[in-house]
């Protein structure tokens, strides 16, 4: 079992990276584990680099930022280039298929068609963040956060008219890992 998981999610402003982090932290709290969520972003509303972080810890969380993530998600080339060096060498990298990466690494790599799945299966790139949440959930495991709690967190946090589409996106994200 885990004591502490540090997750960094990165991409471009407008991709919903921060909402994805909020959903994970929300679910962890609901599961009775400590969690903290932070972000950094530029002054732009769209475009520009976006980074969100979640720390899930059985113990008290003091320093709120992630230093060495155990799990790193990169949806864009520039976010991969910027953050890959910070990843724990025993960690897990999740990148979108569009990102060119160095495959020669100690950490585990999941290169997934996140953006493509959003477009082809759900008809909108808007849900790439929730597909990512599905993939992250499948990797973190249901012994940490149960699926019911994840679904409840997504349902409460996404705009009401988009709940069904986002829950479909969540399932697609799980499928990307589990097949």
């Amino acid at each position: 079992m885990f004591d502490k998981i540090e997750i960094r999610l990165s991409g471009s402003g407008g991709q919903g990276i921060i909402l994805a982090a909020i959903i994970l932290a929300d679910a962890a709290i609901e599961q009775g584990i400590n969690a903290i969520q932070t972000q950094s972003y530029g002054p732009e509303a769209r475009g520009g680099a976006s980074k969100a972080e979640v720390i899930i810890n059985k113990n008290e969380i003091n320093f709120p930022k992630v230093v060495t993530p155990n799990i790193l998600l990169c949806l864009t080339q520039s976010s991969y280039d910027k953050y890959v060096a910070s990843l724990d060498k025993n960690g897990i990298l999740i990148v979108d298929e569009c990102v060119n990466i160095n495959m020669d690494a100690d950490y585990k790599i999941y290169k997934l068609p996140i953006l493509e799945t959003a477009q082809s299966k759900l008809g909108t790139s808007m849900v790439a963040n929730i597909i990512s949440v599905g993939a992250l959930y499948a990797i973190i495991g249901q012994d940490v956060i149960s699926k019911d709690v994840m679904i409840s967190s997504i349902t409460h946090r996404v705009p009401p008219v988009t709940v069904n589409k986002n829950l479909d996106a969540f399932e697609e994200g799980i499928k990307l890992i589990k097949g």
Binding site: I22, A25, I36, Q37, T38, P64
Partner: peptide, 9 residues
């Protein structure tokens, strides 16, 4: 900004 923007319980 750290305290204003972070989310916790």
């Amino acid at each position: 900004e750290t305290v204003g923007h972070m989310r916790e319980k």
